[in-house]
């Protein structure tokens, strides 16, 4: 194991280099152990948290509730709220793009 090798190598080499190096080496050793524990805990947490299943396509009760909340009686209004501002802005941009040429022209030398 790489972690074990780093931790084992620390104390043997500290005598030759000095006190400051000893402290650094020990700190790194403890840091690696702590990092490994955190990584293990994070992996366990991720593995156990995933089945919470509140996503819109999840089949668990929370997921079904989310799906029902999205596809409720207000769906059309909510879709309008999300889409209408962009529709209006698109209409304005289209009016500028395809509108009268005169207002949008400059003149330059060829």
């Amino acid at each position: 194991m790489r972690f074990a090798a780093i931790c084992d190598a620390g104390p043997r080499e500290t005598v030759r280099v000095g006190t400051a190096w000893i402290l650094l080496r020990r700190s790194r050793c403890h840091g690696m152990k702590r990092l490994r524990r955190i990584a293990t805990a994070a992996a366990l947490l991720a593995a156990t948290a995933a089945p919470a299943g509140a996503c819109p396509v999840c089949s668990r009760p929370a997921g079904k509730a989310v799906r029902a909340g999205i596809l409720d009686g207000r769906f059309a209004v909510n879709l309008l709220a999300a889409a209408l501002p962009f529709g209006v802005c698109l209409g304005v941009a289209a009016a500028v793009h395809f509108g009268p040429v005169g207002s949008g022209k400059g003149r330059g030398d060829s």
């Binding site: 802005c89 698109l90 304005v92 941009a93 289209a94 500028v96 793009h97 395809f98 509108g99 040429v101 949008g104 022209k105 400059g106 003149r107 330059g108 030398d109 060829s110």
Partner: peptide, 18 residues
């Protein structure tokens, strides 16, 4: 005018708007 070309600003305006 002879030697000049009409330049169109509309595509830059609409692209900038979007």
């Amino acid at each position: 005018a002879p030697g000049s070309v009409e330049l169109d600003r509309r595509p830059i305006l609409s692209a900038g708007l979007l």
